[in-house]
């Protein structure tokens, strides 16, 4: 089938502002949007750029805005977003981060927020007597399971209206990462992380728009996890 791709283009060396590039490509309904983007780059315009690595929904590097929604280009099938032959698909870079070129954005501000919440395991207590791993019951392991699914694609943070309007906000992805360790019963730095998030540009900037939950390609209930961090802050209890 034929699809019409409308891609937001920007080359900082040539363009003063972004523009729409339009391309017709022949694809199978079971192809992914990433395949269609490859057809443009490989056969129509080699100057077009999109970032991707694994191309199978694991690395999270090809987050783009497809028909107005943040998605991984490698996980969206053509048949799921177009109905008829010749239908248009719009593809833009994710919002709220500086565009480097075409669909590629600068992820550094996103990773700065990620790093700010101490996204690593902290426990300086002595090792268990057998010198092996710190055991955890099934319920304790399940408690933070959702957060472990995050692939840092930035689909959630860049779909958040609070982040669009003020990029000082740590953003949903950073809160999810903090949640993953705050709710890990083996970790000992929950208070420090909660302190970092207990600011207006921390967890309190979330206005429960739920865009993040809708955007997450890993189906993490992002807004719920943010709510759990808020509750931990309000009650002083991690449960």
């Amino acid at each position: 089938m034929k699809v019409h791709l409308k891609i937001k283009r920007f080359n900082p060396e040539k363009d003063s502002k972004s523009w729409w590039g339009e391309y017709d490509v022949n694809v199978d309904p079971t192809d992914r949007v990433l395949d269609a983007l490859h057809l443009v780059k490989w056969y129509q315009d080699g100057t077009f750029n999109v970032r991707r690595s694994c191309a199978h929904g694991v690395c999270g590097s090809d987050a783009v805005r497809i028909n107005g929604q943040n998605r991984l280009a490698c996980k969206v099938l053509i048949q799921d977003i177009v109905k008829n032959d010749g239908d248009t698909i719009t593809v833009e870079p994710i919002l709220g981060l500086p565009v480097i070129k075409d669909l590629i954005v600068d992820m550094e501000p996103f990773f700065d927020h990620y790093k700010s919440v101490m996204p690593y395991f902290v426990n300086d207590e002595a090792l268990p007597a057998d010198g092996r791993e710190r055991l955890q019951n099934i319920a304790d392991r399940e408690r933070y399971d959702q957060g472990t699914k995050c692939i840092l694609c930035a689909c959630c943070t860049t779909s958040c209206p609070s982040f669009w309007l003020n990029d000082d906000y740590v953003g949903p992805a950073a809160v999810v990462q903090a949640h993953r360790f705050i709710f890990d019963s083996r970790d000992r730095a929950a208070e420090e992380r909660l302190k970092i998030l207990n600011e207006q540009m921390g967890v309190w900037r979330c206005r429960t728009a739920f865009n993040c939950t809708n955007a997450c390609p890993r189906e993490i209930p992002v807004t719920q996890l943010i709510g759990e961090v808020k509750k931990a802050l309000a009650t002083g209890e991690i449960r």
């Binding site: 055991l135 929950a190 208070e191 302190k195 309190w204 002083g236 991690i238």
Partner: peptide, 26 residues
């Protein structure tokens, strides 16, 4: 043995309430 318990551990982790915490509660 705690490793086969099926209830999540409840822990205390009190970050000092800030103005923003209070306003959220309000």
């Amino acid at each position: 043995m705690s490793a086969i318990s099926s209830t999540p551990t409840v822990r205390k982790a009190a970050a000092p309430p800030t103005f923003e915490t209070r306003m959220w509660q309000f």
